[in-house]
């Protein structure tokens, strides 16, 4: 079964995927299934795959000094996921990626990921834009975290939040927004 439409949709906001790249990915992407709460990537290990989300929602988090999960990012269908910095640097990841419900991901191993840019240098344009998007997203989040109140963060998140994320346990969303689950629940009830 080809997942061409999935990865074309993922890449094409950044770059048009040529037939040759499509064939390359078709031959190398591997579909992986993760059960609810399974760990896709574990902190302390090196990331081995670059993933494209077919179904499910995933949370990227780290453990703070008090032993609590701090959610930093979510991914959902059509997104890329995994720990990109660990993948490219081959250094140990500080982050976990967890499948919140069941997930299906298309996985490209490190060797095939690297080879993609050797065989198809035009894909470097995608890579550059992808990194720019990550940087811009991290910057926006830092500004929100440091300058906005809990209710402002909640409002901003609800405006841009896709439907998939509204289905997951709210403790993940509360952690992402850096607030207690009770606060998140109260703000959500007020909005409804």
């Amino acid at each position: 079964m080809s997942y061409k439409h999935i990865y074309q949709n993922a890449f094409e906001p950044f770059i048009r995927v040529s037939d040759a790249v499509t064939e390359y990915l078709d031959n190398r992407l591997e579909l992986k299934k993760f059960n609810p709460r399974a760990l896709i990537t574990e902190a302390g290990n090196v990331e081995r795959y670059f993933y494209i989300v077919v179904s499910g929602v995933q949370a990227g988090y780290l453990i703070d000094r008090d032993g609590n999960k701090v959610v930093l990012a979510f991914s959902y269908p059509g997104n890329f996921t995994g720990v990109y910095d660990s993948l490219v640097s081959e250094q140990i990841s500080h982050f976990f990626v967890e499948s919140i419900g069941q997930s299906h991901l298309l996985a490209l191993n490190k060797a095939d990921f690297d080879e993609l840019f050797v065989q198809f240098p035009e894909m470097m344009t995608w890579r550059l834009r992808f990194i720019e998007m990550i940087l811009s997203g991290r910057g926006q989040r830092e500004v929100e975290m440091l300058t906005s109140s809990a209710s402002e963060r909640f409002e901003a998140f609800m405006k841009r939040c896709p439907d998939e994320l509204l289905q997951i346990p709210q403790k993940y969303l509360a952690s992402y927004l850096h607030m207690k689950p009770e606060t998140f629940s109260r703000l959500r009830a007020r909005k409804n």
Binding site: A43, G44, V46, Y61, I63, G67, N68, K69, S175
Partner: peptide, 18 residues
Amino acid sequence: MEANFEILLQQSNTIKNF
């Protein structure tokens, strides 16, 4: 959200990789 087992897993992975 407590992450008791995840902390141990992170530490265990770090030892294995060492």
